[in-house]
């Protein structure tokens, strides 16, 4: 639960609490540590400008805002004094390819991956995913059903 209005200090504190979980979720979706970090920074900035609603699930909110930012603009941002993540992109891709999760997600679209990760990793229900992504609950159900079908096919092919 996020109080409103929110101070920068409070926002930063809440953001830090959720960082690791949301960052990992973004890595699973974007497969790129720099894009994941840039996207999460965008979500932080967006929250400073317009904090999430009081009853919003904070990790879900950060995740969706970051996914949107990454999808909206795939170009890298200027670096200047921005610290880079020491994690190599190839390293993450290899790591995900070795994981069952990585293989399951690899066959999905970015939107499907985002919704699957929101449900199975961040624990959001369909209603919350719909609210965060700004779509109807039926759209979420359909997208997730398609994604699960693909994942099942992936499991069948692998076995």
């Amino acid at each position: 639960m996020v109080p409103t209005p929110i101070t920068r200090e409070r926002w930063e504190e809440l953001y830090r609490q959720e960082f690791a979980r949301v960052y990992r979720a973004l890595l699973a979706v974007l497969r790129d540590p720099d894009r994941a970090l840039d996207a999460l920074h965008d979500a932080f900035a967006a929250g400073l400008r317009r904090p999430p609603a009081v009853d919003a699930d904070l990790s879900g909110w950060l995740f969706v805002v970051a996914v949107r930012a990454a999808r909206r603009f795939p170009l890298p941002l200027p670096r200047l004094d921005r610290a880079r993540t020491p994690i190599a992109k190839d390293e993450i891709a290899e790591l995900l390819d070795r994981m069952e999760v990585g293989r399951l997600l690899a066959g999905l679209s970015q939107r499907q991956r985002a919704m699957v990760v929101a449900q199975y990793y961040l624990g959001l229900d369909h209603r919350e995913i719909a609210r965060q992504f700004g779509v109807k609950t039926g759209t979420v159900s359909a997208t997730l059903a398609q994604a699960k079908a693909r994942m099942r096919a992936e499991v069948r092919n692998a076995s």
Binding site: R16, F19, A45, R82, A83
Partner: peptide
């Protein structure tokens, strides 16, 4: 759910100093 949580939780995160954009550097 179990597979997702168990595996995604092992993904690395960057150092804390890079978490907040304006605090870096």
């Amino acid at each position: 759910e179990r597979v997702f949580r168990r595996e995604i939780d092992t993904l690395p995160v960057p150092p804390e100093r890079s978490w907040v954009p304006t605090e870096r550097g």
